[in-house]
Write a protein that binds this DNA or RNA. Structure first.
Length: 260
DNA sequence: ATGGTAGGCCCCCTA
């Protein structure tokens, strides 16, 4: 089973890239973030013609998440709001159960946080607190649990192209990293880091300053596996190829192959 | 200290 997470920065603009990617990569389940569209404008038809069904939670202008799954798989929506999330409510979580695999997939778009000491930063931390409570409870179900998405957190300095320049900034700050570690300590493993020790592998590069060409990036998109899932992990990687296309998303897809 | 680019939208906001 192939599972991927991709912040597409507008599904309207990126639809051709996403459809091509599904065709080429044969991904079974693709979590999307930053749809930037309402549910009624989501391109269900195009995905359906490509052989995929979609569960989505959109909103106007910003945010929005979806899980795109091969039609043969039965998927049940568990939740599309995060209980206890701060106001204003935003579309940042979709929780889907795949009953046959006893696998639950949480697809997230964690708030960016804008700047340390801003209201948006506090929003991010509060949102993450609500997430921890939610995940803690979700674990009681006994199903395999996979948490993926744009976390907007680079867990370690080796996930940052220039740690000195980024020190203390949003996406790398200590309080954000503590959030990420608290999530791991609930019993999850960063799939990529589990299989790769090396730094300098990134999932996001700013559109500005030719950051991608200079590999000035951060690893902020992750796929976390519950303890029960870890034995099934075969491969974890980041696919930079879509980032090289014309009009790319600023994020690359992150993937895992599970022996499920 | 700021700007650079991209996307959406109602001419600025978010990333």
């Amino acid at each position: 089973m192939l599972i991927a997470s991709w912040n597409v920065n507008s599904i309207a603009v990126r639809l051709p890239h996403v459809l091509n990617y599904l065709k080429e990569s044969k991904v079974d389940h693709l979590g999307l973030q930053e749809l930037k569209t309402t549910d009624d404008k989501f391109p269900y038809t195009e995905f359906s013609e490509a052989g995929y069904s979609c569960l989505i939670k959109g909103e106007k202008t910003y945010n929005g998440v979806a899980l795109v799954s091969q039609k043969e798989t039965s998927c049940r929506l568990v939740a599309d709001v995060l209980p206890g999330a701060p106001e204003p409510l935003q579309s940042r979580l979709i929780d889907v159960l795949l009953p046959e695999a006893k696998l639950r997939i949480l697809n997230l778009y964690v708030p960016n946080g804008s700047q340390v000491d801003s209201d948006k930063y506090e929003y991010k931390l509060k949102w993450f607190d609500a997430l921890l409570t939610y995940v803690d409870k979700a674990q009681e179900s006994g199903e395999h649990l996979l948490i993926m998405g744009d976390f907007n957190i680079a867990p370690e300095d080796k996930d940052v192209h220039d740690p000195a320049q980024w020190e203390g900034q949003v996406l790398v700050s200590e309080r954000e990293r503590q959030c990420f570690q608290r999530l791991l300590s609930l019993g999850f493993t960063d799939s990529f880091r589990h299989l790769h020790e090396e730094g300098g592998v990134f999932s996001w590069w700013d559109y500005r300053q030719m950051a991608f060409r200079r590999n000035m990036g951060l690893r902020i998109d992750h796929i976390l596996l519950s303890k029960s899932l870890l034995p099934f992990l075969k491969r974890a990687w980041i696919d930079k190829s879509p980032r090289k296309l014309e009009k790319p998303s600023d994020h690359a897809p992150v993937l895992v192959e599970l022996d499920l």
